[in-house]
């Protein structure tokens, strides 16, 4: 029902988003030669840096797979991604949802994780024919299982309704967690793939009267700026199936 109406209304979405889409286009067209050259140089530097890192990454990945084989555990599944562009945001104050320009036509399905260049962005909650809706990780109704990158401590990062803040739920005051710790998705729950950065611990308040620490997290993803996001496809059927099962549990 929602999908049908959403498909019918997608032209309105495009019209409402037109100023921003046009702004991007115009910016591309009238950029000066200097700024283009500067950007090109910066991008080339970045490619060099990243290719150097990815060379190491390949070697490490193979080593990791060998070690996992030795241990007899399953190799991690690598995932395909699909690039999508932002087509609108849900404008109500307390709903953090955005609309992207890939839908059922491109094979998008409910429950797929969405990331941007910096980290975990959200998940697909509704698929129309040509567009779909992404629930951002900062929405109050959203929570993502995370682990501390430094020591594997597991927790759940819940949205707070503010675009720059997540909160860890039920962290005991004795837990080994510090300001600046990187949190990544733990893959528990089966909805999100493991190992994508979620955010950094920005403050840690320990109240003597409470058994739990108040841990706030600054999301890694540029939730209010990214116009391009990646939809993560689970690589094989088994993974997709298991995520469907766990979504039923959730």
């Amino acid at each position: 029902m929602r999908a049908v109406i959403g498909t019918l209304l997608s032209p309105l979405q495009v019209i409402a988003e037109a100023p921003y889409l046009l702004g991007d286009e115009v910016g591309e067209v009238i950029a000066t030669r200097d700024s283009l050259q500067g950007r090109n140089a910066a991008l080339e530097r970045r490619v060099l840096e990243l290719s150097q890192v990815s060379q190491q990454f390949l070697a490490l990945k193979q080593e990791n797979e060998r070690l996992r084989e030795l241990l007899g555990s399953q190799a991690r599944i690598s995932a395909d991604v699909l690039i999508a562009e932002l087509l609108g945001v849900v404008p109500t104050v307390n709903t953090h949802q955005v609309i992207i320009d890939k839908g059922a036509q491109a094979g998008v399905a409910v429950g797929q994780a969405v990331i941007d260049a910096e980290g975990l962005f959200g998940q697909i909650v509704e698929v129309d024919q040509y567009t779909s809706r992404v629930l951002q990780i900062t929405d109050v109704s959203h929570a993502v299982p995370v682990q501390v990158n430094r020591n594997g401590l597991r927790s759940i990062a819940g949205g707070t309704g503010r675009r720059d803040q997540l909160e860890l739920e039920n962290v005991p005051v004795t837990a080994d967690i510090r300001e600046g710790d990187l949190l990544e998705s733990s893959g528990l729950g089966g909805r999100f793939p493991v190992g994508y950065p979620v955010g950094h611990v920005s403050s840690l308040i320990i109240d003597a009267t409470s058994p739990y620490a108040i841990v706030t997290v600054r999301p890694a993803a540029q939730l209010d700026r990214s116009r391009h996001v990646l939809i993560v496809f689970a690589a094989d059927e088994a993974a997709a199936e298991s995520s469907v099962k766990s979504s039923e549990v959730q």
């Binding site: 209304l9 309105l12 979405q13 019209i15 409402a16 921003y20 609108g88 945001v89 849900v90 404008p91 104050v93 503010r162 675009r163 209010d224 700026r225």
Partner: peptide
């Protein structure tokens, strides 16, 4: 409806 979903840049205060 278009006005109802039109929004200011997301980096502006919520």
């Amino acid at each position: 409806m278009v006005l109802a979903i039109f929004h200011v840049p997301e980096s502006w205060p919520q």
